[in-house]
Design a protein around this nucleic acid. Sequence first.
DNA 1: CGCCAATGGCTCGCAGACATACCTTTGGAG
DNA 2: CTCCAAAGGTATGTCTGCGAGCCATTGGCG
Lengths: 232, 232
Amino acid sequence: MVEHAQEALFRPVRAGNAFEETVERLMQSIRLGVVAPGERLPSERELATRLGVSRVTVREAIRTLQENNYVESRRGRYGGTFVNQEIPKSAPGKEFGDIHDALTLRKVLETGAAEAAAGRSLGPSERRGLRTRLEEASTASLAEYRRKDSRLHLAIAEATGSASLTAAVAEARMRANELLDHIPLLEPNLAHSNAQHERIITSILDGDPASARQAMAEHLDGTASLLRGFLV
Amino acid sequence: MVEHAQEALFRPVRAGNAFEETVERLMQSIRLGVVAPGERLPSERELATRLGVSRVTVREAIRTLQENNYVESRRGRYGGTFVNQEIPKSAPGKEFGDIHDALTLRKVLETGAAEAAAGRSLGPSERRGLRTRLEEASTASLAEYRRKDSRLHLAIAEATGSASLTAAVAEARMRANELLDHIPLLEPNLAHSNAQHERIITSILDGDPASARQAMAEHLDGTASLLRGFLV
DNA sequence: CGCCAATGGCTCGCAGACATACCTTTGGAG
DNA sequence: CTCCAAAGGTATGTCTGCGAGCCATTGGCG
């Protein structure tokens, strides 16, 4: 029996209970900017259906987000649950033992996604979407940068046409961002990042997989080394 | 709000109930050859702990595997649950709509893993492990090839030192294998595969990331095009 | 030969999650 | 001004899964 492979296959079947998982998902969609401040989450009933949990569980999760000032709910038609303008910083802490784990997975998924996206023939709406996200990220302020950045990277993953790859990228980004939240974001980094984004998107739109991969790798290595520098 | 990214983030929080997930994991470990025919699974109590489910649930899952002739259980000390010599073929069917999804994810993860593994400085036991798996795969019969092949690929993922990457590769391989099970495995393919394995492992042991990635990409493209040819 | 440790086999009560139904609030349409 | 659709808020009974404990079986060790 292969001893080490067991660790991967016999890991826990579920990360937490239904409630915790639901909170996690909703927080992800907010932190990654999929639902921006001021915007409305899908209705409780719709979330329950899409997340595959009961409405009770969705409500408990939303109540937790309310208590932590992530969202506010309004009743009545045209009501709903809205993302607050200011959302709390993520709690510090975390085990630093799995930095390698998180960064390795992120690099594999994101460089792979960039390459795969460049290798596909993209439709007009996809090309437009990528340009829009690029533009949004490049004009973002420091405060909203992390969110716009994530939206751009998620758009790249979506451009692969693989839903499970997109989900995996979202997950990996979330883990990486939890670490990145502990280091300062500076204007020079931001400018550098934008230049790299430009290269990545251009390569994808030009259909140059090797170049897209290369550009993404350099982009990620930048933040990765920044992170290691701050934490070690 | 980014509409498409929602699909990834608001997907169901759990793939199935605890029982179904547990059956899935145990079947994976058997089908991927992590626990070979004749070998013993960990005890029910240990599985319950590691999988994070109750022993009752583990037992129900094992009973399902028994009923489908995957395993047999023996009581008493030095008893346990043993994998049968002949395990059933996986049921056909499946949606073919997500072939692209499955193959895209697999390629991204496995080429990334090969590259990452080649980029690390591996310890003696890891190097030995890789050579052993390579040897096992190269001398495998047609019947046991798929299993030995998976073990080799999992060993490569493990060599990245990232547990979550290993888990993701296992998952992706499982999905791809479900598709590959429907096409015949021929001697010439096998010989070709072994040559490619040799290149991959050599590149990893030599610490040549680019070459490892390249070799893995060609290896996977071979089976991918074979699959598309048979199914389209 | 007898003990006993480790395994699978079994049962019962509790807590979490669920489906379902109904209530309350709100603001636009008619 | 009234109505009502759509959203959040609440309550209840059911069922799944869990924890914990005990039983039955087996084979090695003393």
